[in-house]
Simulated assay, not measured.
Amino acid sequence: MKNLLKFYLFLTAFLLAVNCVKAQDATIPKKEANFDLALGMGENSSFSYALSWNQSHGMFSSNKFRLGYGLRFSGFTGSELNYITAPADLTGDEATIDTLLISNPHTLGLSALINLQYQLSSKFKIGFNIDAIGLGFGSTSDGRFISSENTGQYPEMVKASPSSFNLLLVGDRDLGQLKSEFYVAYALSEKTWLRGGMDMTFTEYTTNQELTNANDRFRYKPVLVFLAVSYNPFN
Rank of each mutant, 00 (worst) to 15 (best):
L5S: 09
K6Y: 14
Y8W: 10
A13C: 08
F14C: 02
F14Y: 12
L15N: 01
A17K: 00
V18K: 02
C20H: 08
I28N: 04
P29K: 07
K30G: 06
K30T: 10
K31R: 09
N34Q: 12
N34F: 13
F35C: 02
D36C: 11
L39S: 06
L39K: 05
S46F: 12
S46C: 12
S46R: 09
S48L: 09
A50R: 03
L51Y: 03
S52P: 03
W53I: 10
N54K: 06
F60G: 01
S62Q: 13
K64W: 10
F65M: 11
G70Y: 07
L71K: 03
R72W: 02
F73I: 06
E80D: 14
L81Y: 01
L81C: 02
Y83C: 05
P87E: 05
A88Y: 07
D89G: 07
D89R: 13
L90P: 00
E94S: 15
D98R: 04
I102T: 00
P105Y: 04
H106R: 12
L110D: 11
S111Q: 08
I114H: 14
Q119D: 01
Q119L: 00
L120A: 12
S121M: 04
S121C: 03
S122E: 07
D131Y: 10
A132W: 03
I133L: 13
G134F: 10
L135W: 15
D142H: 08
E149S: 13
E149Q: 14
T151H: 13
T151M: 10
P155I: 08
K159I: 03
F165L: 15
N166W: 06
L167E: 11
L168F: 09
G171P: 01
G171Y: 05
G171D: 11
D172F: 10
L175Q: 11
L178D: 04
E181M: 14
Y183F: 14
A185E: 00
A185T: 00
Y186A: 15
A187S: 12
S189C: 11
E190D: 12
L194I: 06
R195T: 07
G196V: 06
G196L: 15
G196Y: 09
D199A: 11
M200L: 10
F202D: 07
T203L: 13
E204F: 03
A214P: 02
A214C: 09
N215D: 07
F218G: 01
K221P: 01
P222K: 14
V223Q: 14
L224F: 07
V225G: 12
V225S: 13
F226R: 06
L227N: 06
L227A: 15
A228D: 04
F234V: 09
N235D: 11
